[in-house]
Amino acid sequence: MHSSTLLEVKDLRVYFYTYAGVVKAVDGVSLSVHRGEILCIVGETGCGKSVMSRALTRMVKPPGRIVSGEVLFEGVDLLKLPEKELRKIRGREISYVYQDPGNALDPLYTAGFHVAETILAHSSSAKFNEAWGKAVGIFREVLIPDPEAKAKSYPHELSGGMKQRVVIATAVANTPKLIIADEPTTALDVTIQAQVMELIRGLRDKYSSSVMLITHNLGVVAEVCDRVAVMYAGKVVEEAFVEELFTNPLHPYTQGLLEAVPNPLKKIERLRSIHGSVPNMIDLPEGCRFSPRCPHAFQFCNKEPELVERSKGHLVSCWLYRR
């Protein structure tokens, strides 16, 4: 194991046992997060990125089940840890920032209470007043104006951007080693999005935490990420440093994604789109999952490709590069 590796996911599989059949939402994901980096997980809606992130601390709800795999966090397999030990990791070592800040806060409690509660959950000695004081300090760090007053506000009295800052404040309350941000800016408008991304990057620099940023916004990826993992239909298809990915995308799916985003430097009549749609997760195509939509599909593609390192730090799972 690499010394700078914080989290290593090996062959994680999460299946949902529904009446319609087994939905293989995450089907063999392997990736790693290094210390102090921002790793982006990119993919279409329904490709399993959120489920994968929740499975890291066993937060998958029934009928979903973690079928197999390892999640090594500083060498300890979280999937084998007893619930009691895992509770100590949640919110202290690994914390979450959710997509919808409006629902991530209990409407009956003040903003400061949420942060104080997270602090108290991991400290047996601290008093509520101390925790509250710390919470106000954290509010200041996440750039909430007038933190004393805002700490006493109820969620419905705060704007969307402010609520997301409160959610971020609860996430960083115990200076975790890994922050998992699941589309943290989707519910916010564009001007606030930039501020929140800037904030997350600033906090990473300050606490030297790692961030796993889940997004489908390639602009965000280019802006803040160090490394990118592209997911398709429950699998990682490509993993690379951000410059490498944008200048030299290898997987046809990544190429398609990048062509589907307008490039201000090129004048084009129409944006290219990827043909077809995301496969049915119950009845997946055989072999490479992208092959039915892939412009380069050939006879090899009916077998499943493996994720292999093509150049330093650049992994891809496609038969095109194994000939």
């Binding site: 601390t57 919110g91 991530a104 209990d106 609860t170």
Partner: peptide
């Protein structure tokens, strides 16, 4: 509700 999941994810008992 999401805030219940959020509380659990923050390690609240």
């Amino acid at each position: 509700q999401l805030f219940i999941e959020a509380a659990k994810a923050m390690g609240v008992s």
